[in-house]
């Protein structure tokens, strides 16, 4: 597993908090692992929860219609990069 950056670690902590994932620790989320589907196995409600947390914490609005949002939801790394690039706060 590749090492987490500081921003990725903070995002991992946010995901665990928002998604009831207390059985894993933030360090355990591989930045390159798929968040949805077979990886962490998140579902559509999680997508909504993540989008909500990201809009509240970073002021970034996510849109499912955008290809960039789909890409952002792929991994911890892509989600962190997307937020870093678009954040306003």
């Amino acid at each position: 597993m590749s090492a987490q950056t500081e921003a990725e670690k903070n995002m991992a902590i946010l995901l665990i908090e928002v998604l009831n994932l207390e059985d894993i620790s933030a360090e355990e989320i591989d930045p390159e692992e798929q968040l949805f589907g077979d990886g962490l196995g998140l579902d559509s409600i999680d997508a909504l929860e993540i989008a909500l947390a990201v809009s509240q914490d970073f002021g970034v609005q996510m849109k499912a219609e955008d290809e960039s949002t789909r890409e952002a939801f792929a991994t911890l790394k892509s989600l962190t990069d997307f937020v870093e690039k678009n954040k306003t706060t």
Partner: peptide
């Protein structure tokens, strides 16, 4: 079937 608030708004 939009999911995110901004999609719904648009």
């Amino acid at each position: 079937k939009p999911l995110f608030p901004q999609d719904i708004q648009e």
